[in-house]
Simulated scan of single mutants.
Amino acid sequence: MTVIAGVVGQPIAHSLSPVIHGAWIAAAGLDAVYRRFGPADADGFAELVDQGRRGALRGLNVTAPFKEQALALADEATGTARACGAANLLVFENGRVRADSTDGLGLIAALAGQAPALNVAGRPVVVLGAGGAARAAAAALKAAGAEVGVLNRTVERARALADDLGVAVVDAAALGEAALVVNALSVPPAIDLAALRSDAVLMDMTYRPLATPFLADGRARGLTTVDGLAMLIGQAEPSFRALFGIAPRDVDVRAVALKALGEAA
């Protein structure tokens, strides 16, 4: 029987996850498909999860705005998902729903691939934003030993995140000492890159465009940058293993994704 999995969000047409997972499926010769699902609202998402419980789906990667609901609907969840307060992966088995968050793994994999000289252990890092993406980033970086500070325009939201995860709320002055600055906002951040260390690393969790204004400005300053596509691929690898029961084959999925984006490698 064909295994059916996919990615769910709203909007979802832009997602590159089917391109990435599809390349791995083809390389492994699996009888499987990985689709986009775009329910209109929370009720539609809940119905999709019910389909999974009934055996129609093997699992789902989950993106905005359904990550928190995904965790709430699960029967069991990993400690990582609980720490993040959200899930980007649901696996259905025997009528039960298991939730996990692989976003943090994706972030750490992206840093290892594109900023291999960076060691965050014991060093100050700043996460920009206080939403679900920021929460996943802060949790992963804290687990890696970093001294995490959260910088957000609405201090109350930053405080809620910081209290949940045991990290700090910082102001713009913290940027001057940061070894790493992660943009977890959906828009370009309004920060002064001139205030950063000359060896600071910049990461943007967004991948459309691949060279966001934040990263382009950092490169103009000579800073090392890490893009959101590297994180997307990094979180997709453990998701693929969970959904299909095998490790991804050695395929250059970044090149495949860049072609889909219309960008050069």
Rank of each mutant, 00 (worst) to 15 (best):
I4T: 15
P11N: 10
I12A: 07
H14G: 08
S15V: 05
L16D: 04
I20W: 06
H21V: 08
I25V: 06
I25S: 05
L30H: 02
V33H: 09
P39E: 10
V49R: 11
A56C: 15
L57I: 12
R58I: 06
P65C: 06
E68S: 12
E68G: 07
A70F: 09
L71A: 07
L73M: 06
T78K: 12
L90D: 01
D100F: 10
T102M: 10
D103A: 08
A110W: 00
G113C: 05
A117K: 11
R123F: 04
V126C: 01
V127Y: 00
G131W: 13
R135V: 07
A137V: 08
A137F: 01
A144C: 14
E147N: 14
L151P: 01
L151E: 03
R153A: 06
T154M: 04
R157Y: 11
R157S: 01
R157P: 01
R157G: 10
A168N: 13
N183C: 04
I191Q: 08
D192T: 05
L196R: 09
D199I: 07
L202Q: 13
T206A: 15
L215N: 02
R219E: 15
R221N: 04
T224P: 00
A230W: 01
M231C: 09
G234I: 02
G234V: 02
Q235G: 04
E237P: 03
A242Q: 14
A242S: 02
D252I: 07
K259M: 12
A264T: 15
